[in-house]
Amino acid sequence: MALQGAFIEHEAMLRRLGADCFEVRQASDWDRPKDGLILPGGESTVQRRLLDDLGLFGAVRRDILAGLPVLGTCAGMILLSEEHLATMHMRVRRNAYGRQLGSFHTEDRVEGIGEDVPMTFIRAPYIEETQSEACQAIARVDGNIVAAREGKQIATAFHPELDGDTRIHEAFLALVSE
């Protein structure tokens, strides 16, 4: 989804892993055949407004519910939560770490992915609560849930596209090729 934010970084990551991709900037782009969707970081208010105004919101939600694999990072995670696309059963707190001075980098374990996954948090959200058994917390930092998985959807509060580590994108591509 290339409406706003850091989508070029995701494209570079996918190409590095040998996957093809294209940018979705309007409703007609969404009609092209696809096997997966990345919702990038950026400003969730902007992206939500553009999803609505450009007539993408309903179609995107329908396809995710029908099983289209998704990776949502930061703003993308917010869009997957109950307030927006509501395809993942989770409640998310925006700007949970405060303003830019609260942004930070760390490394931690992600269940099903591995140890020492680099995690860059930029004015990041975290998951306050998962609201169904189906939505599984897969990473915690300082007790807060920072990544979750539900069916073929992966959501991270951090930005795997900004660090050199490809493991999160590999896990997403594994869902795509399932």
Binding site: G5, E43, C74
Partner: peptide
């Protein structure tokens, strides 16, 4: 981190 915040503003 500060450069990366600017990256999040891109396309905006």
């Amino acid at each position: 981190l500060n450069r990366q915040l600017a990256q999040m503003l891109k396309g905006g």
